[in-house]
C-alpha cells in the first residue's frame, strides 16, 4: 500500500466527494418532491396526472440512469437544448429517483390500516387533516427504511456521472487506476470516501426510523 500515493491524491477525492454529495443531495431532495407529487396524484386519483405519473414511474425505474443521462447530455443538444453536465446529472438523478421515491411512499401509505382512514373521518377530521395528522406520519414511518435505502442508492448512482465527464468519486478512482495502475489504493480511497458519505446518511435514517415508531405499531416482534 503506497501511502505516498494516498496522500498525493486525497485532495482529489475530497473534491470529488463534495461534488458527489452536492449533486446527490440535490437529486434526493428533488426526487422526494417528484415522488410525493406522483404519489398524491395517484392517491387522490387526479385524472390525467395519475396516468402520467403511472407511465413515468414505469419508464424511469425500468431503464438505466446511464442511458437516460446520455440522452440528456448528447441527445438534447441535437434539438438545440444544451444543458451543462451538472444540470443533466441532477435532472437524470431526479428522473430516476422520483420513481423510486414514489413507490416507497406508496408502500408506506398502503401499510396504514384502513381503520385509521375511517376513524379519522369519523372523528370529524377533514380528509386533508386526516392525511396530515393521522395517515402521513404513520405512512412515513413505514416508508423511512425504504426512503433511506433509496437515498443511499441514489448517492451511489452518482457514479454514473463519470460518463459525462463529471469528476465524481468513481471518475477519480477510475482515472487514477487507468493512469497509475495503483488499483488497491484507488479503490480503498473510493470505499472510504463512500463510507464517509453514506454511513452518516444510513445512521441518520435508522435514528429517524426509530423515532417515528408509534405505540402499537411496529411491534409484531
Amino acid at each position: 500500500m503506497d501511502t505516498e500515493f494516498l496522500r498525493r491524491f486525497l485532495p482529489m477525492y475530497v473534491r470529488a466527494a463534495g461534488l458527489t454529495l452536492r449533486l446527490g443531495a440535490a437529486g434526493i431532495v428533488f426526487s422526494l418532491a417528484v415522488g410525493a407529487l406522483c404519489c398524491l396524484a395517484r392517491q387522490f386519483r387526479i385524472p390525467v396526472l395519475r396516468r402520467v405519473a403511472g407511465v413515468y414511474i414505469e419508464l424511469a425505474r425500468n431503464t438505466p440512469l446511464l442511458v437516460q443521462l446520455f440522452f440528456l447530455y448528447f441527445g438534447l443538444p441535437k434539438i438545440g437544448v444544451k444543458l451543462s453536465a451538472e444540470t443533466c446529472a441532477i435532472v437524470g438523478l431526479t428522473f430516476l429517483g422520483g420513481a423510486y421515491m414514489a413507490e416507497s411512499l406508496r408502500s408506506g401509505l398502503e401499510a396504514v390500516d384502513t381503520a385509521q382512514h375511517e376513524s379519522g373521518l369519523c372523528l370529524g377530521l377533514t380528509p386533508m387533516q386526516n392525511m396530515r395528522y393521522v395517515i402521513l406520519p404513520q405512512a412515513l414511518a413505514t416508508a423511512i427504511p425504504s426512503i433511506g435505502a433509496n437515498a443511499v442508492f441514489l448517492i451511489k448512482e452518482t457514479s454514473v456521472f463519470s460518463a459525462v465527464a463529471l469528476a465524481d468519486l468513481m471518475y477519480v478512482a477510475k482515472d487514477l487506476i487507468g493512469m497509475y495502475y495503483r488499483t488497491d489504493e484507488a479503490l480503498l480511497m473510493l470505499t472510504l470516501a463512500y463510507l464517509a458519505l453514506l454511513l452518516p446518511l444510513s445512521v441518520a435514517f435508522s435514528l429517524l426510523e426509530r423515532r417515528l415508531r408509534h405505540a402499537g405499531f411496529g411491534g409484531a416482534v
Binding site: M1, D184, L188, T191, L192, L195, L199
Partner: peptide
C-alpha cells in the same frame, strides 16, 4: 466496519 475495511485492504 472500519476495522473490516482496513483489514481487507492490508
Amino acid at each position: 466496519f472500519v476495522a473490516l475495511i482496513l483489514t481487507l485492504s492490508l
